[in-house]
């Protein structure tokens, strides 16, 4: 019993220390005069790595989730003769929840784990250390571009995910199941509010982007510099980031749509 309490205490302290180190890392990376002009090419490269390379999985997942939503929604709505509500069902589910959340989960798995592994490996092969000895701050040179690339890319990916999902819903609902095309769009327009639904969804995905990117960078930067340590850190990134996204999603949903 006492051992378990001790374990709990140790875990809590460990988590708090990790949070502290993550904050210090972020602070070190972002504090002071940013030089995106001199290093704009680095930022572009990272947007390519985390954003463009995640595009395919986002497009495919978005399309299929939209199609499944339409298929599932149609069978339920048809029972009540409310097929015309299919558009709002698909759009609202995607914009408010599935778009930001699924994008964040996919992003954590695709880009987050890659970031962790890359930075962990740079640490293990002393690249970060040698950069420091060359009087180049690895926080500014390595962490900052990846941070901004993540925070910029993920909301863009979520927007694309939403749009593709709604088109996927159209594909199944209208082209296959025969819901009226005009009804699909107009019912959607009548029920989706730009401010309430689209903007709030984007805010959600910006928060998730921050959370996932910081977790991924921190886990890599803090990784034990061995192959085992890096593989552990990569797993931890995916697990921690996914749980954090779901936790934050609940809080944000309660604040945005709950009251």
């Amino acid at each position: 019993m006492l051992n378990q309490i001790q374990q709990l205490g140790a875990n809590t302290l460990g988590t708090l220390q990790g949070l502290g180190r993550a904050t210090l890392m972020l602070f070190g990376a972002l504090w002071g005069r940013p030089r995106p002009l001199k290093n704009w090419h680095l930022y572009l490269k990272q947007i390519y790595v985390v954003g463009v390379l995640s595009l395919l999985i986002i497009l495919v997942s978005g399309l299929f989730i939209g199609m499944v939503l339409a298929l599932q929604g149609y069978t339920v709505l048809a029972k009540f003769g409310a097929e015309q509500m299919l558009g709002p069902l698909v759009a609202l589910s995607l914009l408010r929840e599935l778009g930001p959340v699924v994008t964040a989960l996919l992003f954590a798995g695709r880009a987050g784990s890659a970031l962790t592994a890359e930075i962990g490996l740079m640490k293990a092969t002393e690249q970060l250390s040698s950069m420091e000895m060359m009087a180049v701050d690895p926080l500014r040179r390595v962490i900052a571009p990846r941070f901004w690339a993540g925070v910029i890319s993920m909301p863009l990916l979520a927007l694309i995910f939403n749009a593709v999902g709604i088109l996927g819903g159209h594909l199944v609902g209208v082209d296959w199941l025969g819901v009226d095309a005009g009804g699909y769009w107009s019912a959607m327009q009548a029920n989706v509010d730009f401010q309430q639904d689209v903007v709030n969804g984007v805010i959600k995905s910006i928060v998730f982007a921050f959370v996932v990117t910081v977790i991924a960078l921190h886990k890599g930067f803090d990784a034990v510099p061995t192959s085992e340590g890096i593989s552990q850190a990569t797993t931890q990134t995916v697990v921690t980031a996914s749980l954090a996204v779901l936790g934050f999603d609940f809080v944000l949903t309660a604040v945005m749509f709950g009251g």
Binding site: E126, S129, A135
Partner: peptide
């Protein structure tokens, strides 16, 4: 410290080239 480091350099065991 960063100014001082510009005057020194270090050759790491692994080389630590940027991959």
């Amino acid at each position: 410290l960063y100014q001082a480091r510009k005057k020194m350099s270090m050759l790491f065991q692994s080389g630590a080239l940027f991959t």
